[in-house]
Amino acid sequence: MKKIKAADFIFVTFFLLALGFYIFSYGWIVSAQQIINGLQKGSMYALIALGYTLVYGIIKLINFAHGDVFMVGVYIPYFVANIFMNQGLQLPLWLALVVAMVGCLLLNMLIEAIAYRPLRDKPRLTMLITSIGVSLFLENFLALDPHHVPFPINYLVFGPQFRAFPTLLKEKAYPLFKGVMVSNIKIMNLVIALLVMIILEYIVKKTKMGKAMRAVSFDMDVAKLMGININKVIAFTFALGGALAGCAGVLFGLTYGVLQSPYLGLWPGIVAFVAAVVGGIGNIPGAMLGGFLMGIIETLALSINSNLGYGVTFLLLIVVLLVKPTGLLGSPYTEKI
């Protein structure tokens, strides 16, 4: 236990040192602005990371396809908003959230039923490889050009082109202090993320299904013996993860306002995975903390150099896995090492 605490200390010290160095070289005002931007990004990452953590907690699977479920969550409100716009209507934000969450929930349950359920009693690596396959399939299939594929498929695929996300919320910027700006979208992102996290915490801690989830996560075989319907619990977990990813998708649309291509889920998915590992995979508050932390770290690194931000995330992953594989808030018992 003592060794783990030392690793914690080193990690936090390094983070503070890096932050101090950044503030020293870029000044207070830039740093404060970047941290606020980082919190906006972090709320998105935290929601995706929660999906990773929930699934890992239940069936010990690193669900690579989660980033792509998030990507579908960005595209669904885009298409629905377009339908609304053709009728001359404006899609309200709450409806966009509901549509994205329900769509991603169904997609994630479908993926679980088709790809992961037949593999549940096989070695764990087969499920991991399948999830990599599902991820690549979703990306590459949805990126097919609708003009070049035969009839029934061209209504399913999104196409590789850039699209502009419709404005669900008009951006208004408020000065906070000394030129540091806060916009209503940034506040809205944080509020939505925190609200969804509170609801999740309620579901996991207070409801009967949450109790069943915690039981399955603790010991699947014993939970089965106690009469818990494993399939139902696992499907419910995937549904929860999917809904969180859909919510994050709407936040992505609000933040960036542009849909690059169906590959856009890859990078947030990987960062969110790193966030889940940093916070301690399988641990819900850990994923939230890790998400906000990764948002801030990535924003700061990206503001120094665009290629650096890319490498820092992965370096952090390697360092955390080697020094402290249980993460910041994870339980000390792992079978990994």
């Binding site: 690596l125 990987i270 995975f273 490498g311 992965f314 390697i318 080697l322 594989p325 990994k336």
Partner: peptide, 30 residues
């Protein structure tokens, strides 16, 4: 260092290795 890890964790670190290598090559100008 990384072969101390096993299974899916090793998979992820090797994935990270690919991406770190890629971004390191791209940083060669700096």
């Amino acid at each position: 260092p990384i072969l101390r890890l096993k299974g899916d964790y090793l998979a992820i670190v090797t994935l990270a290795l690919v991406e770190v290598m890629r971004s390191a090559i791209k940083l060669s100008d700096e």
